[in-house]
């Protein structure tokens, strides 16, 4: 889309605001599914902006890649997240204040740079077909970039497969039988490592079922399921909302 004047300006501002709102929501959402798709929303706005800037091909490719990427990221979000559905309100942040200060400073610095640097006004005329231009560049002067990208992607595929599969370098040579004893590589020294942040919080999982004491605390790495851990009384940590909650709808 060429420089559509006022109309493109309005849309670009709207998309910019949307992108930032979604980006902020990514870290405020409790549910991982919502965080993932807020990130998708933000990156779709980025794709829209690139489209508005005249790079049609790259804009649409970003939209395509981000949709597929966030769909797959959703799988890992659920796999590794403590609270994928957002049903248990919990926060997994550390020194949020420090991070906020640093990123605020970075933003201030960048904004100052944007407004103070005298950007050169003259610009070369935009080529008729930027995609053709990109293709020529990738196959011509930027062939080295193309080669490194190709090799990087190939290396990533091989590395991902070896790292992720159980028969890779880091998994047990023979995958542990589903219910066999824990593999040797769960050393006991992680039994009670020094973790200041966790001490004051009730380390074991908030229980919702009175009659099944699955005391699954971080320290309890022994393979036996449901061993009632005398040291941790069951009732701590379960929210004061025992029965008959109203439904969100």
């Amino acid at each position: 889309m060429t420089d559509g004047g006022v109309w493109a300006g309005v849309v670009s501002v709207v998309l910019a605001v949307l992108a930032v709102i979604c980006a902020v929501q990514v870290f405020r959402f409790d549910s991982m599914a919502r965080a993932t798709y807020a990130l998708l929303g933000s990156l779709l706005c980025v794709g829209g902006e690139v489209l508005l800037l005249g790079l049609d091909y790259l804009g649409v490719v970003i939209v395509l890649m981000m949709t597929v990427e966030m769909a797959l990221m959703g799988v890992f979000m659920v796999m590794f997240m403590m609270n994928p559905g957002g049903l248990m309100p919990m926060t997994m942040v550390h020194n949020a204040r420090g991070a906020a200060v640093i990123s605020g400073l970075v933003f201030a610095g960048l904004t100052a740079g944007i407004f103070l640097v005298p950007w050169p006004v003259s610009r070369t005329r935009a080529p008729a077909d930027p995609t053709h231009d990109l293709g020529r560049a990738l196959m011509g002067p930027h062939m080295l970039t193309m080669m490194t990208l190709g090799l990087a992607l190939f290396a990533a595929i091989v590395a991902t497969v070896t790292l992720a599969t159980a028969r890779g370098r880091y998994g047990p040579s023979t995958p542990a039988p589903p219910h066999g004893p824990k593999g040797p590589e769960h050393p006991d020294e992680t039994e009670a490592p020094e973790r200041p942040h966790e001490q004051e919080a009730a380390p074991e999982r908030p229980h919702v079922r009175e009659d099944s004491p699955h005391a699954h605390s971080r320290e309890d790495l022994t393979p036996s399921h449901g061993r009632q851990d005398p040291a941790h009384p069951r009732e701590t940590g379960s929210p004061a909302h025992p029965h008959g909650r109203e439904d969100p709808s």
């Binding site: 929501q25 919502r34 997240m81 403590m82 609270n83 559905g85 309100p89």
Partner: peptide
Amino acid sequence: HGEHGGHEDPHSEHGGHGQHGGHGDH
């Protein structure tokens, strides 16, 4: 676009680090 529904949590945070949400479901 991705979903924008806001999400407020009236309940106080309780810091219990539960185990991992897993591949299956929560």
